[in-house]
Structures are given as structure tokens and as C-alpha cells.
Design a protein around this nucleic acid. Structure first.
Lengths: 91, 91
DNA sequence: CGCCTTGTTCACTTATTTGTTAACATTCGC
DNA sequence: GCGAATGTTAACAAATAAGTGAACAAGGCG
């Protein structure tokens, strides 16, 4: 079971509403997990990334766990600090 | 010249900083244009879409022209009202 | 041109996110 | 288990986006 699967199961067990709606297509949630995985694979702790972004690790944690209510520009900054790019498409 | 090209040229002519940075890869700007094109192809005027989103046409205009500093959830709502889905990836 | 629709911008208020600190939880190595 | 590093959550102030109304600009169409 990979990180994404684990995170989903964990959230399902602690958030009944999420569990109920997951199969209906709540995609937003996954973004935070993608961000977190990108950060880890780039070898950053939340604190290290926070420093690069001139903020604090608590803010990083908030981004990764509530990625549906963040600003697009915040998303861009986060990705840029990892040397990655955010791609937004509409389909 | 399509809408995207036209919009880029217009902004280049009125926003020197944008013009200077465009070729460096400022992708964010394009999102607003994508949204606007999606709205048009779905046959919505700003006012009609605004009504669906319980807001006003001025808000729609703001979203389409300043799409880099909007909330992700706003983006989702906008797309959902058009029967489309926003996809965010990191690469 | 003159009129109507569409679209943009501004100013103001309200709602929400972000920065920050501190407390708490979790994970990992010893 | 214990301690240290990593990660999460809550609360508050400060910054910023969204809601709104009105004035203005641009685009068709008669």
C-alpha cells in the first residue's frame, strides 16, 4: 500500500463525510498528497521547505492537508521551491 | 490568431513585466484564458455563469483576468458550473 | 451612428487564507 | 521505553480574495 492509499484509508477512518463522498469523485483531496509526495521525493522535511518559502512548517502541513482551500499562487510557490511545475487543465 | 494568442499579445503590449517574463515560462496566466474559452464554448455569458455560481459577472471577469490569485475551490466551482473538471498535476 | 449586450475596472465590505507561535502527536533510532 | 526529529492542530492577527454595485469600455447589429 503506497502513501496515497494509506492517506486515503486514514482519512476515511477519521472523516466520515470524506469516506462517504470519496467514490463520488472528490479529487481535490489528492492534490495535497501529491504535494507531500513531491516534497518527500525531493528530500525536504516540512521545516526545510518552509525555510525555502520563508514560512513555517505548520503552514506546509496546512497546505498538504487542506489543499482544496489554498490559493493558486501558493501552490505555484510550493512547487517552484521543489523545482517542479504545477499544471492546471480543464477537461 | 486564436483567442489565446490574441490575449497574450494584448497583455504583452500593456504589461511590460509580463512581456519580459513570458518566454521564461509564466504559465499561470494561461489558466484564465482557458477558463474563458471553456465558458464561451459552453455557451455562457459572464452574467449567465455568474448566476449559476450565485455571484456577479464582475466576479467572473476577475477570475478570468486574475486567475493566478484565486482559490483552488473557486476554480473547482467555476469548472463544475460548466460541467467540466479541473485537473491539477505536479511535474 | 445609436442602441443593446457583453465584458472590464474600481471601491468598498465581508469572508477566507496565510504567517506565526505554541502545544500536542507521531515516527524513528538508540 | 526514551529522546529527538518530524508532522499536525488550534488560535490569533494580518494579508488577501470574494461579493457586490456602479460606472465605464468594447463588440455586434439594426
Amino acid at each position: 500500500m503506497d502513501d496515497l492509499q494509506r492517506a486515503i484509508e486514514k482519512r476515511k477512518s477519521t472523516d466520515p463525510e470524506f469516506a462517504e463522498n470519496f467514490d463520488k469523485g472528490y479529487e481535490e483531496f489528492k492534490i495535497g498528497v501529491l504535494l507531500k509526495e513531491a516534497r518527500k521525493s525531493a528530500g525536504f522535511t516540512p521545516e526545510a521547505l518552509a525555510e525555502k518559502l520563508n514560512t513555517k512548517k505548520s503552514a506546509i502541513s496546512r497546505i498538504e492537508n487542506h489543499a482544496d482551500d489554498i490559493r493558486l499562487s501558493t501552490l505555484y510557490n510550493y512547487a517552484e521551491a521543489l523545482g517542479k511545475k504545477i499544471k492546471v487543465t480543464i477537461q
